[in-house]
Design a protein around this nucleic acid. Structure first.
Lengths: 236, 236
DNA sequence: CCTACCGATCGGTAGG
DNA sequence: CCTACCGATCGGTAGG
């Protein structure tokens, strides 16, 4: 609850007293929690601000609107998570030296940053992961139109790596498979079933995370490496 | 807009005048459309009733509450759809005469009723299918707690059929796989991404759904038939 | 002119 | 099934 932001605060404090905990961060933390629990439109700004002990107007002052606050919650978490994903992939690629990567390694590099975030409250914990999974299906343009943009880079990078590993799949076929993979992961992490496993062992048994990977990996691996579908012309 | 319900109306009309189009059905049709577009909590009862040209109080009169209206929208569609799924599976099983079914046949029997519903406006069309997919991740107990109950029977029946076809998978492993399959289908049908991937137009040809199935089937088939994960004891 | 808010209230709408 | 409302709450903004 007490972040080490003394330097940053000291720089901006001039004549007014400022609280040690940034109002912006406090709003983001509480918004993340309540959005995850209730969804976007069922969450009121008053619920957020009252639980964060800040003024209602602070949300508009700092973020502009409720919708922009929602986006800010994601920006804070998704950027580092997807950076991890790209870093892990690049490490693998350097080791492979131009050769195709193992399918399992690619999938692990993609999944592990999300699972690590779900274990670490400083990265949003289960709240954020569930929110992330849910947002893929959330209605309203203002709420999920920005997600594809946040995922564009990481999606392209992984699609390229997968294209090397699965040369028999066409570009289009591969795009669909990547879409299915993200969907399966999102649904699994958004659902209560899998998350209850994580949540019940939040501070005790990281092997349970590994357990979910162990279930998910073979399924995704088998799905990705399946032979391509028949063309539509066969049906016509 | 003018359903042929003259008989049904004649039976129930006693002393009050009733319109030829049932108010209940009109509410259900409009509610299905708006819930699919906006989601549950962003949809107001006033929006529904005004677009349906009925009084605001009629929703509470006929359904009890907004949440019960939401459930009624599902009850009307899911029951026949899941009956189709079970009928198709039983037809396959009778032909097979106790032998394991082909994995693709099982998956098609599960997917096709949803596909058919999405093509037929009298079964809800794309509105309902998208709503159905989204509801799996919708927050709020009143909104998606009833879904597992509606799916319990069909899930058990298909799990049994899959157990015969995939005898190398343990019960627990199979439950996870079925969970993943439903998740992938739900995510794909709920997302606008999938439609956008096919065509940029907003009101795409619903027949494109068959194209999605062609992409989905190999992925699910490969995922389901993948070898089981290593046991946890290997990790310890 | 800037920052980080405050107390109060705006016009409308929620489910019942 | 409609009219007439209720307690409360909605997202957002005024001047200071």
């Amino acid at each position: 609850m007490n972040p080490f932001r003394a330097n940053a605060v000291a720089e901006t404090v001039s004549q007014h007293m400022k609280p040690p905990v940034d109002t912006k961060d406090k709003i983001l933390d509480v918004a993340e929690e309540i959005f995850a629990e209730k969804g976007y439109s069922a969450t009121s700004m008053r619920t957020i601000t009252s639980r964060a002990n800040v003024n209602l107007a602070a949300v508009n002052y700092h973020f502009g609107s409720k919708a922009q606050l929602y986006q800010a919650v994601f920006q804070r978490r998704v950027a580092p998570m997807n950076k991890q994903r790209i870093d892990m992939l690049e490490t693998l690629e350097q080791k492979a030296n131009g050769n195709p990567l193992a399918l399992e390694d690619i999938l692990r590099a993609f999944i592990e940053p999300a699972l690590r975030a779900s274990l670490n409250p400083n990265q949003g914990g289960t709240n954020f992961i569930r929110l992330l999974g849910r947002t893929h299906a959330e209605p309203g343009p203002e709420v999920h139109d920005f997600l594809p943009l946040l995922y564009e880079k990481v999606k392209d990078r992984y699609r390229s790596a997968l294209a090397l590993t699965l040369p028999e799949l066409s570009q289009e076929e591969l795009s669909w498979r990547v879409h299915f993979v993200i969907g399966t992961i999102a649904f699994t992490l958004a659902g209560t079933d899998a998350l209850e496993m994580i949540e019940s062992c939040r501070y005790c048994d990281p092997a349970d995370i590994e357990g979910i990977i162990q279930r998910l990996l073979p399924f995704l691996q088998g799905g990705l490496s399946a032979p391509a579908a028949l063309t539509k012309s066969t049906i016509d």
